[in-house]
């Protein structure tokens, strides 16, 4: 299946072509194409119900697209994501994701959450459990390495002191960062974040920006994010794709998108009381 897949240009990581997703009579995503480049933060924005999360679910294997091709440049060559099952997306294609409503393992500690994310290599080290139960093989060494890696991530998100606390006990902002760290522990080439800044206060939002930048620059991981918070989008993204009613209406650098009349219309074509809010957001961005 790799053979018949055309290779992507080297700077591209993911190419989404003519993606369409229908649920019965509803077309949630209609003929959307865009590219995600290596070493960049790509933002997927749009009003509520524009189909952003549906695009995410198609990329991460939770939905099978009705039409379209999703080509990922993996280490072993180009890979068609729509042909992989959900758990293979993480293992073979190295695409990780977070969720709009945080999905941590609440009853497990922060450390355990990060170890679950390293399931595949640890499973191999435990000889598919058989050797691990008997206490032979290199499992202990592999587990120590996994804990070290988890420690590095806990340091990076500033939660090393709370490593042994259950995830559900952490404050909201910490949970968001822990979920990102958990996704990063799978060593992804593409990290998909579904509204990572939702519900964060301004300080936490700044911490998140720094974390996402460090992921882009240090970890050789491209980031694709859905976000409503324009300050986050304009601040950190290198490339913005705008969806409205399931269609792509704009695609380009943040500055280009911000001044695109179609985008302004899509954002202003809402309830009267929201007009001012959106206008002020855009104005704030323009002056800053």
């Amino acid at each position: 299946m790799i053979d018949d897949t055309p290779a992507l240009p080297p700077e591209l990581l993911l190419r989404v072509e003519r993606l369409t997703m229908r649920f019965g009579g509803l077309t949630a995503v209609n003929d959307v194409s865009f590219d995600v480049r290596r070493g960049e933060i790509t933002a997927l924005i749009g009003p509520n119900g524009a189909g952003k999360t549906t695009v995410f679910n198609c990329i991460t294997g939770f939905y099978k697209p009705t039409v379209g091709r999703l080509t990922l440049a993996s280490k072993e060559g180009p890979l068609l994501l729509e042909r992989l099952r959900d758990h293979q997306i993480s293992r073979k294609a190295n695409v990780a994701r977070t969720f709009q409503n945080i999905r941590l393992f609440g009853g497990m500690t922060a450390l355990e959450n990060l170890l679950v994310a390293q399931h595949a290599p640890l499973m191999k080290a435990s000889g598919l459990t058989v050797l691990g139960v008997l206490g032979i093989g290199g499992f202990n060494k592999a587990e120590r390495a996994a804990i070290e890696k988890a420690k590095v991530w806990l340091e990076r998100i500033g939660l090393i002191d709370r490593a042994d606390d259950p995830a559900a006990d952490l404050p909201y902002g910490d949970q968001r960062r822990l979920e990102i760290a958990r996704a990063m522990c799978t060593e992804p080439v593409l990290l998909c974040l579904d509204e990572p800044a939702a519900g964060l206060n301004p300080r936490e939002s700044l911490e998140l920006n720094a974390l996402l930048r460090s992921i882009r620059d240090q970890d050789d991981t491209a980031v694709l994010l859905i976000e409503h918070d324009m300050s986050v989008v304009m601040e950190i993204s290198d490339h913005v794709v705008v969806l409205d009613y399931g269609k792509k209406i704009s695609d380009g650098a943040p500055l280009h998108v911000r001044n695109d009349p179609k985008v302004i219309a899509a954002y202003l074509g809402v309830e009267d009381e929201e007009v001012e809010k959106v206008e002020s957001e855009i104005a704030v961005e323009a002056t800053s």
């Binding site: 939770f62 758990h87 990780a96 999905r103 009853g107 355990e112 679950v116 399931h119 459990t129 691990g132």
Partner: peptide
Amino acid sequence: RLRRLPIGRAWEALREDEIACRSLG
């Protein structure tokens, strides 16, 4: 012993959130 192995942790993770498990491979 199983609880300390990846399979045991995966069981408990499955109990906590199946969708998150799938997203982690």
